[in-house]
Design a protein around this nucleic acid. Structure first.
Lengths: 117, 117
DNA sequence: ATTGAGTGCAACCAGATGATTGCACGTCAC
DNA sequence: GTGACGTGCAATCATCTGGTTGCACTCAAT
């Protein structure tokens, strides 16, 4: 059974990779707090170079978590809340699935114990 | 404001790192499907060596997503559904937070536009 | 027109990571 | 006890990744 559109698996993978790095999570926090900000500004708030920030933003962009829009000579980045949706849903259904299976296994185990006695 | 117990941030980080790798996700799928399975068995289902599987299982274990229990000479691994809880909650509240902030920004923008005209 | 700020590109580097192989150590079965 | 199977440990390897620096380019402002 497939409930997600094609490519959703890859999309989720990209988001998980993006969120796996602590610097990128801090970056997202900063963007959540400050709105539309430039890479140079962000570099001022974190102990890494602007270029490192730019690379991280590229990863976040590839994951659909962030967009940059040009304003004159600068590029302002902001969050794309919808980018989290598919992954949040994936994780929730994963948890539900595990619980379901664990319950099934428990039932089987209890049934086996009953037969055994 | 802190709503999670201490160490929750690190815990979430571990889970995200664990889930970021596609082979580890496949491993979790196999465990969900087959229940308590040995590393050697899992190596038979995936195109990687047993040692690679063992390392992946170690990462999943460190993230609290999996436990192994010794049965004679073999070690059977199974899912730990609770390992997902904190991270699922983290992600949901992150999404909620983003939506909240985006709504606030939108309100400010509309107010500014009103003042402008 | 020149200056300065912000961006984009490329090369480079060290350490992490995913994966392999080889071998030694328990443990079950015959 | 001997052999076979499963595990654990260690060394090794190629690649990925997070980070740096240097330089060229664009655009705004004086």
């Amino acid at each position: 059974m497939r409930t997600e559109p094609d490519g959703a698996v890859e999309e989720v993978g990209n988001v998980l990779v993006a969120l796996a790095d602590p610097t990128r999570r801090r970056l997202l926090d900063l963007l959540a707090a400050q709105g539309a900000v430039t890479a140079t500004t962000l570099a001022g708030r974190l102990p890494v170079s602007r270029q490192a920030i730019v690379k991280h933003l590229a990863v976040l962009d590839a994951a659909g978590l962030v967009v940059g829009s040009r304003v004159g000579r600068e590029v302002r980045y902001s969050l794309r809340p919808a980018g989290l949706d598919a992954t949040t849903r994936w994780m929730s259904s994963l948890a539900a699935d595990w619980d379901r299976r664990l319950a099934a296994i428990k039932r089987v185990a209890e049934a086996a114990e009953r037969d055994f006695q």
